[in-house]
Design a binder for these strands. Structure first.
Lengths: 350, 350
DNA sequence: TTGAAAGCGCTACCAC
DNA sequence: GTGGTAGCGCTTTCAA
């Protein structure tokens, strides 16, 4: 009736070294071994030495799976993002991972590809894996399946750049898109532009904030906020298509704000193919830095932010939430700032 | 003597829904519930329905931790990289994650920051988490601690763009850096360049292959392979510093191959500050695509590769290794190709 | 301080 | 087909 070991195919597998092997080897109780390895108080030096030596010999190290099952704590957190390959996102992940692993947590990373349904599935999967907390950068803010999954579990939650309904208990890490884009819009209006174009993503917080920022910039100058808005995927293709559409229209915008760095490549392609000179024939601002942006000819005006810091902040929030679930949920708003460059100039007067 | 529940702070926590609650609710045996949820054969439709309904009511979903402990299989793999934030790396991760999650595996991602010692520690941590396999993109190829950790466990292993000693049983996913860089070097030599400069990273496979490729390109033309080599961090700062050094030397190279895309920003800065015109005063090739590379003025010659595919391939190799540990270890060599652009031109004759 | 024993939630064997 | 049961490797009481 012994448990049948899963087909140990006479491969090397170092003979499943468990706590009881160590206990037997050291001639002590199984509990003592546990105490030594979990650093519990009340273990004699002598015991510690014996156990450690025995463990050394048999090559033991604790099975975190069993620990997690018993302790009801996995020391792991799940991170669901919509696009790992986006440098912005990977920088956020980088920041979060650094903080988490320093705190002894492992990161379960999963990609939803921007599909709300996948977001929801991944969240449930991570819950089944009993992660201690969750960081989310979901595609949309109101997917019912996602909200249901989140609501059903009391797992600590940090959401990045998205705003979920109040019914979901979560902490938030926002970028202050309003300020950065506002600065950009004001700059463009001061230069004399009157018809701006703004490309944003789906109806998520950053998109709303950016539109609000441009609107308010117009209003500040007592101008009617009349500008073009395009909402779509923040991809190069979409950037190219939208620019093409706008530039072919009867009254094309004289300045465009791109709400995502992936749009830039596409937009520049269209601009190039039309032989327009940036900063003269058309002004351009991109949100989020692109490696060659400032070396480009002409250098591209950019709304910057510290994405690594966003990840760090999210991780810290999550660690707080895990250790003090009682504490009021909190919100961090991290700065963005506008760096004007030559891609923005006065519009051609005709 | 009941297990003391970890301080259920009268928060919501949905009352730890376990398999036996479902069994009781459905009035069936605990084993039947297990069978239903693990999709085992030999369960009557009636039983399945009863169990599923009961599970629905109490809101049950299997605890993967317990499953993993019992099955000796976590359905998770570890991925250790040196820099998540590098777009190249995150693209590899993207590819791997897609394949793994489609196969029902979760990804434990961890960053070593390029520190060999951290690589080794992370590997050990993942082993304690009992991952079913490991994908590695380590900083160096010969760190003793890393090799020891790897050797001590029989965990299936896939290594990307690094070549470990034969003593480690692993599968490999390589990029064919030799071909791409070879094409670039030949192009430059054909253009008339005689003194190339090559910037590579540490002594790892890609660096060696790139140097070998340039060497062979010289030899093909019966020329003595006399070119500058710089080995260092593949960072923008290092790119700038090396270019500065080379361009200040008595006989500066007339063409430079950058062995990593992060070098490009730095190199271009130096070039710009010296008022050199790419393709005329200096020719430049970068390994690995940079978003604005082809739109740059002038467009930058690039050695391309499909990093997403590398990740996919690594994941597939790992899944193979997990399901058939016996099978001979294998190697994949994925193509790289050179895309000549205006940044390469004939050297100025003087 | 230490050992024994119960049990975390599950799977897989056994007998019916 | 189905239920009972042992045990995955560990932590944490309780008694000594």
């Amino acid at each position: 009736m012994a448990l049948q070991r899963p087909q140990t195919k006479e491969k090397k597998i170092p003979d499943q070294t468990g706590i009881r092997q160590v206990a037997k080897r050291a001639g002590v109780g199984i509990g003592s071994v546990s105490r030594v390895f979990s650093g519990a108080a009340g273990v004699s030096d002598q015991m510690r030495a014996r156990v450690l030596r025995a463990a050394e010999i048999v090559g033991y190290s604790p099975n975190m799976l069993a620990q997690a099952l018993r302790r009801q704590k996995t020391q792991s957190v799940g991170f669901v993002v919509s696009d790992i390959a986006n440098p912005l996102v990977s920088s956020i992940i980088h920041g979060a991972e650094a903080v988490l692993s320093a705190a002894g947590y492992s990161l379960l990373l999963t990609n939803s590809g921007g599909e709300p349904a996948v977001d929801a599935r991944r969240i449930r999967l991570l819950q089944q894996r009993r992660v201690d907390g969750l960081i989310l950068l979901p595609a949309v803010e109101d997917d019912p399946a996602m909200l249901a999954a989140l609501g059903a579990s009391g797992i600590p939650l940090v959401v990045i750049d998205r705003s979920l309904p109040d019914s979901i208990e979560a902490r938030y890490v926002y970028s202050d898109h309003y300020t950065g884009v506002g600065q950009a819009a004001r700059h463009l209006l001061e230069l004399g532009h009157r018809s701006l174009g703004v490309i944003v993503g789906l109806d998520v917080r950053p998109s709303r904030e950016r539109i609000r920022a441009v609107t308010d910039a117009y209003r500040e100058r007592k101008m009617k906020p009349k500008f073009l808005v395009d909402a779509g995927p923040l991809s190069a293709e979409h950037g190219a298509a939208t620019m093409k559409r706008w530039l072919s229209a009867p009254n094309p915008p004289t300045a465009v704000i791109l709400g995502g760095n992936q749009l830039l490549v596409g937009a520049l392609e269209t601009i190039r193919s039309r032989n327009l000179r940036l900063g003269r024939d058309l002004s351009l601002v991109v949100c989020d830095d692109v490696p060659l942006g400032r070396l480009f000819d002409p250098p591209i005006s950019t709304v910057m932010r510290d994405t690594d810091l966003m990840g760090q902040t999210a991780a810290r929030f999550l660690l707080d939430a895990i250790s003090q679930p009682e504490q009021a949920a909190s919100i961090a708003v991290l700065p963005t700032w506008y760096v004007p460059r030559v891609s923005c100039g006065a519009p051609v007067t005709r």
